[in-house]
């Protein structure tokens, strides 16, 4: 009988600007399974990693926003395709982190479907929400939606794949770029999902994924002056207060998504896209 093959373990790194560096801090935190065995040494992302990620996100944002809605839709669809192809891997990761097989399967399948759902909105939400405004003067006036810009996100801790996907998809389908901090308790899927993104024609920098400690990074996410919006999905009043207070330094848009049932319609509707959009109204005279 042949000797048992030694499996090749994956190094989980963070994802910034389309690359997979280790955290610049050199620090890590061990992720253990329920028996206390170390599954992986996760990057303990730092404020400098976040800073680098924002630079990458800012650089990528305008180009991504200029991509046609059709293209953005296709790329989101491509993410779903790639995720489907790695379905078993994600199920296994979720199980490693404590999910039952059934729950893991459901979470991965729903995540894939959710990507398809938002992919389809790419070239439609504008049609649903924008308007032509019948002003009284001799002007043509219309309001369209534009991405808010760079969105910082603190992904939900409990729904480590579906929650992550449900926040990333509506932000990027509308032309934003984002920096997202994956689940602290179950960080594997965030990194693996970054690999999916990397394989899916998503331009580098459009989505940046960090792992690390929420308590350490929240204030930087909320206070960075070149971030236009912040989404947070966990925490009580104290977290909400910290985030909102710091966000006020540059009048960030603050989007609270706590206590969301990520499996339901609450996490699957176009109003989530609208959360990170700005209304731009244009006037032009009608004359000869």
């Amino acid at each position: 009988m042949a000797a048992k093959r030694i499996a090749v373990a994956k190094t989980y790194k963070i994802y910034i600007g389309g690359k997979f560096p280790r955290t610049e801090s050199g620090r890590y935190f061990p992720l253990e399974d329920k028996d206390g065995k170390v599954i992986a040494n996760m990057c303990r992302g730092s404020r400098k990693d976040f800073r680098n990620a924002v630079v990458a996100a800012r650089k990528a944002q305008s180009g991504w926003a200029k991509a046609s809605a059709y293209l953005r839709g296709q790329i989101l669809y491509r993410i779903a395709e790639m995720l489907e192809g790695r379905r078993e891997q994600f199920i296994a990761e979720l199980q490693q982190q404590g999910s039952s097989k059934r729950a893991a399967e459901k979470e991965v399948d729903t995540s894939i479907d959710r990507l398809i759902y938002f992919a389809g909105w790419a070239d439609k939400f504008q049609q649903v929400f924008s308007s032509v405004n019948p002003v009284s003067s001799s002007h043509f006036n219309f309001s369209v939606f534009e991405p808010t810009g760079v969105v910082a996100m603190l992904a939900p801790d409990d729904s480590s794949l579906l929650g992550l996907v449900s926040n990333i998809a509506p932000a990027i389908v509308g032309g934003n770029s984002c920096v997202i901090l994956g689940s602290e308790r179950k960080p594997l899927c965030a990194v693996s999902f970054a690999e999916v993104l990397h394989a899916s024609d998503v331009p580098g920098g459009v989505v940046n994924v960090l792992t690390g400690f929420r308590s350490e990074l929240t204030e930087y996410f909320a206070s960075h002056m070149d971030v236009n919006a912040i989404v947070y999905c966990d925490g009580g009043k104290a977290v909400a207060r910290t985030v909102q207070e710091l966000a006020a330094d540059n009048i960030k848009r603050v989007i609270e998504r706590t206590r969301v049932d990520w499996t339901g319609t609450e996490a699957e509707n176009p109003y989530l896209i609208r959360d990170t959009q700005e209304v731009k109204t244009t006037w032009h005279p009608i004359g000869t």
Binding site: S137, S138, H139, P285, I286, G287
Partner: peptide, 13 residues
Amino acid sequence: LSRVPAVDEVGVN
């Protein structure tokens, strides 16, 4: 005459 500035009717009104 190509250098003569354009005129916007609504602005004139």
